[in-house]
């Protein structure tokens, strides 16, 4: 338990550095460090499937995607911060924390989940599916319908990238874009 708190502290520090630092590449690396911490935290909590996915997706994709595709002239925000916006954000965070305190009191304590449905999976997973990796048997057999929807996430991501980045999405206000440029 103790090492988990050290990891959490490390991740919080990394997140603060990622927000506050000026250089964009350093900021990306700080976010990557947070992802690494999360991956190790998954390993400590005995979830190696999630650790592998986290390591591959969070760090490598984040760093490679941003580092390889970012442009040299990065626009930085130098305007003064808006006071009203900050107040509204603070109000929302306060409200969220208040209601989260009320809601989270009823949850079981950390490391002692309510084992109603999952107990059945643990007991009969190997016999019913034949997969020794119980995570695979849950996500691809008992809960395969959820995975069917989840698999289309990246397709949605492709469409989102194309919608934002194509030529017509970047035109200036008075610029006319020809049809074949799209």
């Amino acid at each position: 338990m103790f090492e988990l708190y050290i990891l959490l502290l490390f991740m919080i520090l990394g997140a603060i550095i990622a927000v506050e630092i000026k250089d964009l590449l350093s900021s990306v690396i700080a976010v990557g460090a947070v992802g690494l911490g999360l991956s190790v935290a998954f390993l400590i909590l005995k979830a190696p499937d999630l650790a592998i996915t986290q390591l591959a997706v969070e760090i490598l994709c984040l760093i490679i995607l941003i580092r390889a595709t970012i442009r040299r002239d990065i626009p930085t925000l130098n305007r003064r911060k808006e006071v009203v916006g900050s107040i509204i954000v603070l109000l929302f965070i306060g409200g969220f924390l208040f209601f989260a305190y009320l809601a989270l009191k009823d949850l079981p304590s950390f490391g002692h989940p309510i084992m109603r449905v999952s107990q059945n999976y643990l007991a009969e997973g190997l016999r019913k599916t034949g997969a020794t990796n119980l995570v695979a048997s849950v996500i691809l057999d008992f809960r395969a319908y959820d995975t069917l929807g989840e698999a289309t996430v990246l397709f949605t991501a492709v469409i989102g990238v194309l919608a934002v980045l194509r030529r017509i999405g970047r035109k200036k206000v008075d610029e006319v874009v020809k049809e074949e440029d799209e």
Partner: peptide
């Protein structure tokens, strides 16, 4: 384990090609 390896392979095609397509879109449009 029946269909589980087949499902894994299907998801692998989907995710791998999807991520590669995101990257190609970012590169080609830049």
């Amino acid at each position: 384990a029946g269909i589980i390896p087949l499902c894994n392979i299907a998801i692998c095609f989907k995710v791998g090609a999807g991520l590669f397509a995101v990257f190609v879109a970012l590169i080609l449009l830049k």
